[in-house]
């Protein structure tokens, strides 16, 4: 049995931000992966939406890409919203209610460490989501443009940062019950008319929607996976949202 040494460390000895983010990321990933309800939101719901679109053939046109080719990038975008906005938002809201955040505030983790740790966890869940949703879509006849895979990955990382930022921003500023309602509501609204799944051109007078992070993520992924192209405007819009929401979260986040 090793002897317990509790001699105080005289100098500040917080780990580097990178090690803290990796540690928090590993820890959060494990919690998310073992949380049934959250996995349901993250994988099953987008899967249902994908199947629904495939069965109804909603986007089918005579000449353009098939429904599954249009729908899959949007569903991947929707799954980013699920794990980032809804999943982490709700989990963080309850952590705040039960004093877990208050405890974390007394450790060297810090708000940046917490946010980035959660982004890492969302990306880890995202890998699972891409594999599951991608495999099902391939079975349904999805043929992604391989030239756009790298761009798609970039948009997913940016989307994870932006929507985890939004989830934490809500969780860190309003009550947990309100967080639960708000993040679910946003998921439904943004998912339905925020340009995530349904391309914005389908709506009349949808100029505003194009500037939402949801549309930017959906458009970026569709351009990448349908045409293999890089949507510069969507990239700039999403990056700006990512910066605004991260800074806002770190600035206004309440630990209790």
């Amino acid at each position: 049995m090793t002897k317990l040494d509790l001699t105080p460390v005289e100098e500040p000895h917080s780990s580097t931000l990178l090690s803290k983010v990796i540690a928090q990321g590993r820890y959060e990933t494990r919690i998310t992966m073992t949380n049934g309800e959250q996995l349901l939101v993250s994988i099953i719901l987008p899967l249902l939406a994908l199947t629904g679109l495939f069965v109804t053939g909603l986007f089918d046109t005579v000449e353009g890409p098939s429904t599954i080719d249009i729908a899959t990038p949007g569903i991947l975008a929707l799954s980013v919203l699920s794990s980032g906005l809804t999943g982490q938002g709700i989990a963080t809201g309850f952590d705040r209610r039960y004093g877990v955040l208050q405890y974390l505030a007394t450790t060297p983790l810090g708000p940046i460490g917490l946010l980035l740790g959660k982004v890492v966890a969302v990306l880890m869940v995202q890998v699972t989501q891409v594999i599951v949703l991608g495999a099902v879509a391939l079975l349904m006849g999805w043929s992604p443009n391989l030239a756009g895979l790298g761009t798609a990955a970039l948009f997913i990382v940016l989307g994870a940062l932006t929507f985890t930022g939004l989830g934490l921003f809500i969780a860190g500023t309003v009550r947990p019950e309100a967080t639960l309602a708000l993040t679910n509501l946003l998921w439904v609204i943004l998912g339905a008319i925020g340009g995530v799944v349904f391309p914005v051109a389908d709506f009349a007078g949808s100029v505003v929607i194009d500037y939402l992070p949801s549309a930017a993520l959906g458009n970026g992924l569709r351009s990448a996976l349908i045409d293999g192209s890089f949507d510069g405007a969507a990239f700039v819009i999403l990056t700006l949202w990512g910066i605004i929401l991260s800074v806002g979260t770190i600035r206004w986040f309440k630990w209790r």
Binding site: P12, H13, T107, P108
Partner: peptide
Amino acid sequence: AGLRSQVGVML
């Protein structure tokens, strides 16, 4: 984080 690393808290 430097200060936090030197202070322990039990809530």
